[in-house]
């Protein structure tokens, strides 16, 4: 089979063809705002990149490890507030993002530690519980302004491109993580846990530690997104960043794109980033209906999402030849 046991980085380099399209997309995204400098367009790209990052992050846990969370708004919100508080205390924004990552990862243990040990639906249940509980607490917490929100004061001129490139780097990191994990022992272990936790444990995988690890990693990325968003928005409030909507969005994107794949969540993020703008703008009164029906349809018709449907189509075309 494998003739030369070359180390992973070298083998990745050898597979540059596989990644050529991704490098081209990345380069395109890097020069895009210089060519089309409409602030509104850059804002759309910025938001889409943030959505892609959360989508990829959710997929690390929900896709690879198969642990469905309905509460990623907790990490998004904690990240947003941590960055806001740190920046107002005079911390450099990029260090603030890292602090957000760490805080969010620590918060992930609050849900993971008691529930991942157990079999059954406990984790999913607890994620809904904690996101509600945290939102209510944040609405009542006085030092962050409670329900009326919190303002970030940055003593620097606002430069949209700074924010855009931060988001681009973050999204690239997330995708690189996703690619890397899917090719390592860690990813193989998560994959096995999703398919059959008992069988995985019987072959030496520690499901508890692996689920905790994937959860913490996903939370850290999501927390950083929250931080980047709060610096951009300069004003956050619990109903927004901790809102139920946020959790729904983060969960919806990877499911639409294709769960447990690398590019599915990215695709979901792109579709969502663009379509959500339109849906919310055109039909704000039925967007929940649209989200809900999409979930139901995908689960019953094509659980592989857009990517799954696309692959099936390709297979059918090849099969006819």
């Amino acid at each position: 089979m494998s003739t030369s046991p070359a180390p992973l980085p070298i083998r990745l380099l050898a597979q540059w063809r596989t990644f050529a399209p991704s490098w081209m997309i990345l380069a395109g995204l890097a020069v895009m705002p210089l060519l089309l400098s409409s602030p509104n367009f850059i804002r759309l790209l910025f938001v889409t990149l943030l959505w892609i990052t959360t989508s990829v992050a959710w997929n690390l846990l929900g896709g690879f490890a198969g642990q469905i969370s309905f509460g990623f708004a907790v990490f998004y919100g904690i990240g947003a507030y941590t960055t806001a508080l740190s920046m107002n205390a005079g911390v450099n924004p990029f260090i603030a993002f890292l602090v957000s990552a760490i805080t969010a990862a620590a918060a992930s243990l609050l849900v993971g530690l008691p529930t991942f040990r157990l079999r059954g639906p406990y984790f999913a249940i607890a994620t809904i519980g904690i996101s509600e509980a945290v939102r209510v607490v944040m609405t009542n917490l006085s030092f962050t302004g409670g329900a009326s929100g919190y303002r970030i004061v940055e003593h620097r001129a606002f430069r949209q491109l700074d924010h855009y490139y931060t988001a681009l780097v973050l999204a690239s990191i997330a995708v690189a993580f996703s690619v890397f994990i899917s090719r390592t022992r860690f990813g193989l272990g998560l994959n096995a846990i999703r398919q059959d936790e008992d069988a995985a444990a019987g072959l030496g995988v520690n499901p508890y530690a692996y689920k905790l690890g994937a959860h913490a990693l996903a939370a850290a990325l999501t927390g950083m997104v929250g931080g980047v968003f709060s610096r951009y928005a300069a004003f956050i409030h619990p109903q927004g960043v901790f809102g139920f909507q946020t959790s729904v969005h983060i969960l919806l994107m990877p499911v639409i794109g294709g769960i447990a794949t690398i590019w599915g969540p990215v695709l979901g993020g792109v579709v969502f980033g663009i379509v959500e703008e339109q849906i919310i703008a055109s039909f704000p009164e039925i967007h929940l209906f649209i989200y809900g029906s999409m979930l139901i349809l995908i689960i019953l018709v094509e659980p592989g999402g857009i990517l799954g449907a696309f692959r099936k189509l390709l297979r059918r075309i090849h099969g006819r030849r």
Binding site: G62, G66, I68, F70, R119, G120, P121, A124, V248, L251, V255, I259, E285, I286, H287, L288, F289, Y291, G292, S293, M294, L295, I296, I298, I299, L300, P303
Partner: peptide, 24 residues
């Protein structure tokens, strides 16, 4: 005999639809 990913997502989607129905 275990709660599946599909069942969680389906019921969640149903909840969103019902909520919207209520608002509507």
């Amino acid at each position: 005999d275990q709660p599946t990913l599909a069942s969680l997502l389906l019921m969640f989607g149903l909840w969103l639809v019902l909520q919207n129905l209520g608002y509507f």
